[in-house]
Amino acid sequence: MKQQFLYENMLVNPLRFRVNEMMEPSISQASAEITHEALLGYVAKEQDKDAFARLFTHFAPRIKSYLMKGGASQDQADELAQETMLAVWDKADKYNPDKAAASTWIFTIARNKRIDALRRMKRPDYEPEDPALVADDMPHADERIGTEQEAGILETALETLPKEQAELLYKSFFEDKTHSDIAAETKIPLGTVKSRIRLALERLRGQNAVKALGK
């Protein structure tokens, strides 16, 4: 989690890092751990292929794994992971680090790719430019939700979950299973599945609240 704390300036304005780099060569010489958010920023603003390759190196094998857990064969998953990263490249200019962590944004692209290819359906979703969309009523509340900071806290907090809770989250997010599916598969009563997941989420949120207070 080093990368979250070093170079925090970068995620506000990735370009600023470049300017600093030129003015203070010692920074560029240091082994920089650049955040995924910053890398996406370079891809978006400068079509930076090196930045993209670094994102690929981290995310593609994980997307492949995610797709296989969701039912894809190894070959299929490899191909779909490549397509997902191509979509990341393609849509990078729509990415806004103030609105979402890189992993959040990339997850949604991978998820939609999985639904499209494995469930053979187009996911009905809200569209930001829809004239019928009811606009956000609490713009300040949105600022922290789903951003890099929250993602970082969650990554750490997930490690502290009891195995029986973590397992259920993995089945929900990775194995394409509803709570009912999970109950049927594990023979755990549906009520227990729901309450364990609820406990897991509360625990994760609790960590959020503690960190927020500490700030």
Binding site: S65, A100, A151, L169, L201
Partner: peptide, 19 residues
């Protein structure tokens, strides 16, 4: 919030499989 959780799981808790 849920998508952020999904992303955190994907990025840090999904064992990579080599491309």
């Amino acid at each position: 919030k849920y998508e952020c959780l999904g992303g955190a799981m994907l990025s840090a808790h999904c064992e990579p499989i080599s491309m």
